[in-house]
Design a protein around this nucleic acid. Structure first.
Lengths: 238, 238
DNA sequence: GCAAAATATGCGGGTTTCCGCAGGACAAAG
DNA sequence: CTTTGTCCTGCGGAAACCCGCATATTTTGC
């Protein structure tokens, strides 16, 4: 078995190396990469089918790397190992996981034991392992108490990029009014409507406030924004 | 000499502990805290005057912790040890450092050597040590090529929180038009004006786009936003 | 297959942004 | 004292946003 570790922090990388060695005695080769970029290259070169991947690396982040790896070999087993459980990351991951692929999502705050268990489960047993806390986020984001639909999320991202209603309508092949409808749903779900106290009305620019709330609640994060920005420029050129 | 380490990642924490022991043989006591919250308490309890502080911790971030520590003992020497050199962090730090205080700013990507040198310089020699890269950000943000004035930055934050022009005017004791003036300056400095190609005009909602650009350029980040949000709620209650 | 619910579109208007133009306040330089 | 530069302010209008109301179109559930 060959395992690829993609992680930019040297400390965490060597810790992972250790953990892989300890949890997977049948593993006869461990490759390390320190960025998403080089991770993709190493994966291609060494033909690994087991990857431990950090999200949020400075160069090219884990989600993008995972997507290209999966595009080339959809049967690759990937264990995501991340600091946070931002809804933006969780959503980003589940957006790219191919049909039937096996993967895992473990937080860095988890114990050694949990990490090793996850390594064995995902790589040997081909079983999906999602950290309890991450699972919670997933549930909440789907079971729509405050959870956003995919459609709503898309609009949110476009708004956050700074596009006008008209531009969004054009990009998404919708009428202007439909876009504004979706926006209103967003405003409700994000509870953007003013402060409860006082006669503070009209204090918020709803469009901007919605994005601010999404950022504060980690529904959006800057890495998701960066991805969207790149995508926007690519598409506008094509 | 007593040293307090405030860092939420266990791996980094023990690495720091090691580095402190190695670099400062005269240090006879090392205290660890795993959040800004507990960092403040430990600092008070152990009366340390030397702190190594991580920025961006989940609970209460390093900047806030540093501020309260400095408020109680302005002669405390603090070495900030951070992953990134976002302008938002740099600005946040220089905003809170008291007159004449000694501090340092080292990136986690720096070598062992650099870290140890910084520890000795700041804690023993009482000399400020700012990482080269961070220094660069500082320069750029002050020497205003694209750098924002403090006034502009304030407006930017308020806009990013989702306040309307009117609300900002009231908060800042300015007329509506003045706020809009400052906004226009922002738009220019952030180069928000549309894509160069095509007849793409009116594609951007300037107000939103400005914030998006600021986020992408790390002039703003979510931690700065959180701080501002808390502040907003505090002030509105008083 | 049909009713109900969700989603998409058009219209119209009130409000907010965005910004050019023009004038005042105040400080620094000539 | 005048000039120049910077900052604040008011006015007015075009464009964009927010959103209630009414009408298709599609999806869903039974």
């Amino acid at each position: 078995m060959r395992v690829l570790i993609v992680e930019d922090d040297p400390l965490h990388r060597s810790y992972l190396h250790e953990a892989v060695r300890a949890a997977l005695p049948e593993c006869d080769m461990v490759v390390e990469a320190e960025s998403g970029q080089s991770g993709e290259i190493e994966a291609r070169k060494a033909r690994v089918e087991h990857v431990v991947m950090d999200l949020q690396m400075s160069e090219r982040n884990g989600i993008e790397a995972a997507r290209t790896i999966w595009r080339e070999r959809p049967d690759t087993k990937i264990l995501f190992w991340s600091n946070y459980s931002d809804e933006a990351y969780v959503r980003g991951v589940s957006r790219i996981v191919p049909e039937g692929a096996t993967y895992g999502y473990v937080l860095k705050s988890a114990s050694d034991e949990r990490l090793k268990l996850a390594l064995r489960s995902v790589f040997v047993e081909s079983q999906c392992v999602i950290d309890r806390e991450v699972r919670g986020i997933q549930q909440k984001s789907l079971g729509n108490a405050h959870g956003l639909t995919d459609a709503e999320y898309e609009i949110l991202v476009d708004v956050a990029l700074g596009l006008t209603d008209k531009a969004i309508a054009q990009r998404k092949r919708l009428s202007l009014r439909s876009v504004q409808n979706r926006l209103q749903q967003l405003y409700e779900k994000l509870e953007v409507y003013d402060l409860p106290d006082d006669g503070m009305e009209g204090w918020y620019n709803l469009r901007m406030r919605a994005v601010a709330v999404a950022l504060l609640r980690k529904v959006l994060n800057s890495s998701a924004l960066e991805r969207a920005e790149r995508e926007l420029h690519d598409r506008s050129g094509s």
